[in-house]
Amino acid sequence: MDYLDKLESRTIFIIREAYHEFKNIAMLWSIGKDSTSLLWMVRKAFFGKIPFPIMHIDTSYKIPEIYSFRDKYAKEWGLNLIISRNEEAIKNGVSPDKGRFECCNALKTEALKQAIKKYKFKALLLGIRRDEHGIRAKERYFSPRNQDFLWDYKNQPPELWDQFKSGSDDNSHIRVHPLLHWTELDIWKYVQRENIPITNLYFAKNGKRYRSLGCLPCCSLIESNASNVKEVVEELKTTRIAERSGRAQDKERAYMMQKLRSLGYM
């Protein structure tokens, strides 16, 4: 087994553990490289027949290519796709101009809360990685959220030897993070090896590309000439720029990411 095989095997183990423990689960698919890789491994874990829905939290501000990519592969891979939007907030005109924190909170966190309530999900699979952002380095593989979605990071249950927190007693849900141990470079090497379809927003056109994908107004392009997976892998081997440097919500004020996350942001 090589290094990527080991990462993949652990991820598949965690996916299967989550499904066995909670049954009523869903995977959050943002259509980005991480959750698309996670989806690839979810397909492997269940031999192509995923026994739970794949959910896209749609803020309505996503980059157009994301929607077409989503619809194409949802069909091709036979996904049970749920699209969740906070319609009321969208109708009321919530937008980044009126405050990024409020916008993320209403269109992502609230939309997710509504979906969990509607479908009564016990656990959600998310494609976050520890190396993405300082605060994500503190996550557990199985991370409980209480009814108000709050994350009590100071008092997290211990995890050891592939034993995780199991079903919860109250009405909270568990966030499951099967990609926690992957790095950005690992993901791209895996995308390359497995030939996973990835939206072309990540590849350079006219000297610019997206390195991290979010909503159109809050996501900026980075300078890059990497126009395919192989070139992205090469670029990442030498880069000294942080992955989420193009993500406005991380930077607007110190700790915004922490605040968002403790309120239930993905």
Binding site: P157, P158, E159, L160, W161, Q163, K165, S166, G167, D169
Partner: peptide, 12 residues
Amino acid sequence: FVLMQNSEICAG
């Protein structure tokens, strides 16, 4: 092995 109470690990 681990020992669990109330679905949380309390011993290794």
